[in-house]
Design a protein around this nucleic acid. Structure first.
Length: 277
DNA sequence: ACGAGAACCTGTTTGC
DNA sequence: TGCAAACAGGTTCTCG
């Protein structure tokens, strides 16, 4: 659900009301997200100041005073949204955690499927956390480019679609943006990752960056669950070239067959068989 | 070591 | 209409 653009949009939205603010209250209604929350979760966070919110891949990193980081992943259906002082609705089903700042803003974590996760970890050893330690490069950083992507793909027998979903290759892509990026790069999702290493990788890396940047500019993509921190929907779903557009015309070549759907490692892939080879 | 599939959990859509 | 199956933006674990 939330891929890098959605997480980045939420991070920016939350930052406005949380950075520099103390968490005056933390209400925890259940302990079992994807994994159990750490012991004394709410107590350990209460009274801490959020100095800054960073993002790594699809994880939000709330840097707290006292040297700890609150790690948050939204999973498939997770949302984090804010309500101004006095405006927060009573907690309903699937509202699992609510933070309240010293200014009275309420930040609610809502996650029907509970694939989301949270943990608290020392900031100076954050790279050692089991969920973060094997992540590949940030796609919008200089460390990710054609040559580095080519190196990461070399020798891999798996389809390029699956390779790009592998967070060790590049961190932050999910099912939507992999399909979109492969479309813009003109690369078939069935092609082996190894065969993309080389010249095709030089086209693919910029396509990935461009798709992610455009999606962030649109506030992410709202299909079912995702909302920005403000509660607004994202808008990038209106700009999808292929994702969830099976049977519709390819926006590039307008070929008769149109966008096709196939299933790779259990997940839908959308592509134009004429443009993507 | 690698890659494919199952598992985690709930809600909504699709198909008979 | 009703019920069951399929499907959904992610990640980890197991098995061959």
């Amino acid at each position: 659900m939330p891929e890098l653009p959605e997480v980045e949009t939420v991070r920016r939205g939350l930052g406005v009301r949380m950075e520099g603010r103390r968490m005056a209250r933390v209400e925890q209604r259940r302990n079992d997200l994807r994994w159990p929350l750490p012991p004394d979760f709410a107590r350990r966070l209460t009274g801490r100041t959020v100095e800054r919110i960073d993002r790594r891949a699809k994880y939000m990193l709330f840097r707290l005073d006292g040297g700890d980081t609150l790690i948050v992943h939204l999973g498939m259906s997770g949302r984090m949204y804010m309500a101004e002082p006095g405006a927060a609705a009573p907690l309903t089903a699937h509202d699992h955690i609510r933070f309240e700042t010293d200014e009275g803003w309420a930040i609610t974590f809502h996650d029907a499927r509970r694939f989301g996760m949270m943990d608290i970890w020392p900031t100076d050893r954050i790279d050692e956390h089991r969920l973060l330690k094997d992540l590949g490069p940030e796609p919008l950083s200089n460390a990710f480019n054609g040559p580095t992507l080519s190196d990461a793909l070399a020798g891999k027998q798996t389809p390029i679609k699956a390779a790009l979903l592998d967070q060790k290759v590049v961190a932050g892509l999910g099912n939507i943006y992999v399909s979109e990026a492969l479309f813009f790069a003109g690369i078939s999702p069935r092609r082996s990752a190894a065969s993309v290493a080389g010249t095709r990788a030089l086209r693919l890396a910029p396509a990935i960056k461009q798709v992610l940047e455009r999606a962030i500019a649109a506030g992410g993509s709202s299909l079912r669950d995702y909302v920005q921190a403000s509660g607004e929907l994202g808008y990038f779903q209106h700009q999808f070239a292929v994702y969830d557009r099976e049977g519709q015309p390819c926006p590039s070549c307008a070929c008769k067959a149109g966008v096709r759907r196939l299933v790779q490692s259990g997940r839908s892939t959308f592509y134009c068989p004429k443009r993507q080879t």
